[in-house]
Design a protein around this nucleic acid. Structure first.
Length: 121
DNA sequence: CATCTGACCTCAT
DNA sequence: AATGAGGCCAGAT
């Protein structure tokens, strides 16, 4: 399968189970570019197959998400993830990082091993 | 061909 | 702990 970088990204991102989130750096590494996290975002931006690629399950290393213009609307990703069962941390108190809503990476961070087909029990 | 930008991450202060 | 700057790879001008 001479899969290119993008192909790998699509497969990996699409392999993220529901209720779980992965970081760009993680996907980039699994794709073969541990330093091309930016590329991952660029690839997802193309999103040649909307709906098939759960790009909304990809978040920053801090747990924050895209500025907003992504996914077609601000808070779009946040809503989608909640639908999946992902918990958010709006407690912009001392959790540090970005003031905006973040994902609970402590509970929803994808291990990168669990396959969507098995969906651990 | 050269230059700038970008859905990011990591190092240094 | 928080802030600033650099690097990575590819696409666009």
């Amino acid at each position: 399968m001479t899969e290119g970088f993008s192909q790998a990204v699509y497969r990996i991102v699409s392999s993220i189970p529901a209720g779980r989130v992965a970081t760009y750096g993680m996907v980039a590494e699994l794709a073969g570019r541990p330093r091309a996290a930016r590329m991952v975002g660029g690839v997802l931006h193309h999103n040649p197959e909307p709906g098939i690629i759960p790009c909304h399950r990809v978040v920053f290393r801090d747990g924050s998400v895209a500025p907003g213009f992504a996914f077609g609307g601000p808070g779009r990703q946040q809503a989608l993830l909640e639908r999946e069962g992902v918990r958010f941390i709006e407690g912009n108190d001392r959790n540090a990082g970005a003031p905006g809503p973040r994902v609970d990476l402590n509970a929803c961070l994808w291990d990168g091993r669990t396959d969507a087909t098995h969906s651990q029990g």
